[in-house]
């Protein structure tokens, strides 16, 4: 065989192997989490808060952490939308095409997107100290909002950007103002907004480093914004570092719960973005 052919076959083989390793690692992770977690899972986990002696292996569940995570995720996503939708509309409707301000803003959000959550957590902590806040649901929501704003802006910007310019031209030619045109564009990108929202859910619910500093940890379900709250990633983290096998087992079950939630969210996000591409005008 020709030397060039051998080289081609060799590298093609390597590529197959690399792809198998990468996809295989996903299945390996999922398999580990499911097999370990399923074994330790029971319905008390998702229906009860920790009872006395929970951390030495006695009864109870992690409902406090599940509810806490949901509060933080939903709260920060709503707050994040209120801030990021105007940003996206400003970039796409009000600023001129190819303006320096718009491209600098996009660059800034790309950079913010890359800032790790531990830095947001530390920053959130300095804000808390500055304003004299204690670790609380509110502080957690604010910090996670900072974390997901870049995600929301980038994801929605991608969708609003590709809306055909004929649509806004049609609105303008009917005499609409920019604000009225923005509302038309917003309506057109609802599925994209939902996808962005789901993406930010997935990131917010799985993030531990942000809430570590700001939301605290408690065995109760918070009843006001000023109380601390438990979160799922931290529940996993703390239980795994326990020396008691029963408590570690619970960490596996909690990891399974978190993984299932995140998988459902990502599949829903895929579904909505597909639906969006079908409705393209």
């Amino acid at each position: 065989m020709n030397k060039r052919k051998i080289e081609e076959t060799f590298f093609k083989g390597l590529m197959h192997a690399a792809t198998i390793v990468i996809v295989g690692s996903l299945f390996l992770i999922l398999w580990t989490v499911v097999s370990k977690g399923f074994h330790a899972f029971n319905w008390d986990m998702v229906s009860k808060v920790p009872e006395g002696g929970f951390y030495i292996g006695k009864g109870g569940g992690i409902l406090n952490a599940i509810i806490g995570s949901v509060y933080i995720t939903v709260g920060s996503a709503l707050l994040g939308l209120v801030i990021s939708i105007p940003v996206v509309l400003y970039l796409n409707v009000y600023s001129k095409k190819g303006s320096r301000f718009a491209s600098a803003t996009r660059l800034a959000f790309d950079v913010l997107f890359g800032i790790p959550s531990i830095v947001y957590g530390a920053f959130g902590f300095t804000i808390m100290v500055f304003f004299g806040l204690k670790t609380s649901l509110l502080a957690g929501i604010i910090t996670v909002t900072l974390l997901i704003i870049p995600i929301l802006v980038r994801a929605m910007d991608e969708v609003v950007r590709v809306i055909p310019f004929e649509l806004s031209d049609a609105a303008y030619s009917l005499g609409a103002t920019r604000w009225e045109t923005a509302k038309v564009l917003l309506r057109q990108s609802v599925p994209g907004i939902i996808t962005a929202l789901l993406l930010s859910f997935g990131r917010a619910i799985g993030d531990a480093a942000c809430v570590l500093f700001t939301a605290g940890y408690t065995d109760n379900i918070p009843t006001s914004l000023h109380q601390p709250t438990a979160t799922l990633p931290l529940a996993i983290f703390f239980q795994l570092s326990s020396p008691i096998p029963e408590v570690q087992e619970r960490a596996y079950a909690a990891a399974l719960i978190l993984t299932v939630i995140v998988l459902i969210i990502s599949i829903a996000a895929k579904y909505f973005s597909k639906k969006f591409s079908k409705n393209k005008i």
Partner: peptide
């Protein structure tokens, strides 16, 4: 599938790493 890999929370990677 590769996107799914980026969606898995860091703490779950940690659990997998430990196990």
């Amino acid at each position: 599938l590769i996107d799914l890999l980026s969606g898995i929370p860091p703490v779950v990677y940690g659990v997998w790493g430990v196990l």
